[in-house]
Design a protein around this nucleic acid. Structure first.
Length: 279
DNA sequence: GTCTATGTTTGCGG
DNA sequence: TCCGCAAACATAGA
């Protein structure tokens, strides 16, 4: 599912495809709930003639900045995808929004589970300012992480998944980071030692950079999996140490990986490397 | 064919 | 403040 490395990969691919500088000539909305704001009618009329000045990422949002000053935010949620296809290509089953450029290309928003959302607005800060720090930004230091962890008394895993605490992490990379840092997901945020915080900070950066280098994580072959623009898969699955590896040996100590539910989310841990020990 | 787990976010109630 | 639960959906896999 698209987390920071997957969303960044999509943004990079959109830019490589040459979308910056292109002007949208119109949009067709096939599933209206995808458009979070404004109304579908307003969205379709306001998008006409918008020239793309930049494409970037904030947390798990794809950010289209237009020359006019308007911004389009796309959140893929679970199964959203952006495809650049020939304008003549038949419309496939889950293509909900189709952008035209007056060329032979289309940008199509494809979303099997229909949870993805698109905003078109003047002030993206209204949404983006609620997000926590960017983990790969140089301003995200150990000290910042420490200060934020100690400010809460919450279970670590749900806290790391909270986009207002830190932006861009999802279930896969949180499990991977906690394993790298040898910390149990049920630990309380304010109980971590300085050493553990330093380890966690490094681990978060490590697993995200690794995911990015491998162009994201595609878990299987299904429709709901991650694919970047042009349907390319990510190859980070082979690099995962614990996620969906229940019953396989821990790469560090060979103990079998266990699956447990933490904060209503499946979690994968090494019971020896990541102990709770009455903390 | 049926049942269940899945994963992101928001919102509600305790 | 924090937690659990449900909902928004369709699909994969048992």
């Amino acid at each position: 599912m698209p987390e920071l490395p997957e969303v960044q990969t999509i943004v990079n691919d959109l830019k490589t495809a040459g979308l910056v500088g292109a002007t949208i000539s119109g949009a067709r909305v096939c599933w209206s709930r995808t458009i979070a704001e404004p109304s579908v009618d307003e969205f379709c009329s306001q998008i006409i003639g918008q020239k793309i000045a930049d494409i970037s990422r904030r947390g798990k949002f794809i950010v289209f900045s237009f020359v006019s000053g308007l911004t389009m935010l796309i959140h893929l949620r679970m199964s959203g995808r952006l495809n650049i296809v020939d304008a003549c290509a038949d419309c496939t089953k889950h293509e909900h929004i189709i952008f035209n450029f007056g060329t032979n290309l289309h940008l199509r928003f494809h979303d099997t589970r229909k949870f993805g959302r698109i905003h078109l607005l003047k002030d993206p800060g209204r949404i983006l300012d609620k997000l926590g720090p960017e983990p790969l930004d140089e301003k995200f230091t150990q000290e910042i992480l420490k200060k934020r962890l100690l400010a809460h008394k919450r279970m670590l895993k749900p806290l790391l998944l909270d986009q207002a605490f830190i932006a861009g992490l999802g279930n896969i990379y949180v499990d991977e980071a906690l394993w790298e840092a040898r910390i149990h997901p049920c630990r309380t945020s304010c109980s971590l030692t300085d050493r553990e915080i330093r380890s966690l900070h490094r681990a978060i950066c490590l697993v995200l950079r690794r995911g990015l280098k491998n162009l994201g994580t595609t878990l299987g072959d299904g429709e709901t999996n991650f694919y970047s623009v042009a349907r390319r898969k990510g190859r980070n699955r082979d690099e995962l140490r614990v996620f969906r590896r229940t019953g396989e040996p821990c790469p560090r100590c060979r103990t079998l990986i266990e699956r447990m539910v933490v904060g209503q989310r499946s979690s994968h841990i090494c019971p020896v490397c990541q102990q709770l020990e009455g903390r």
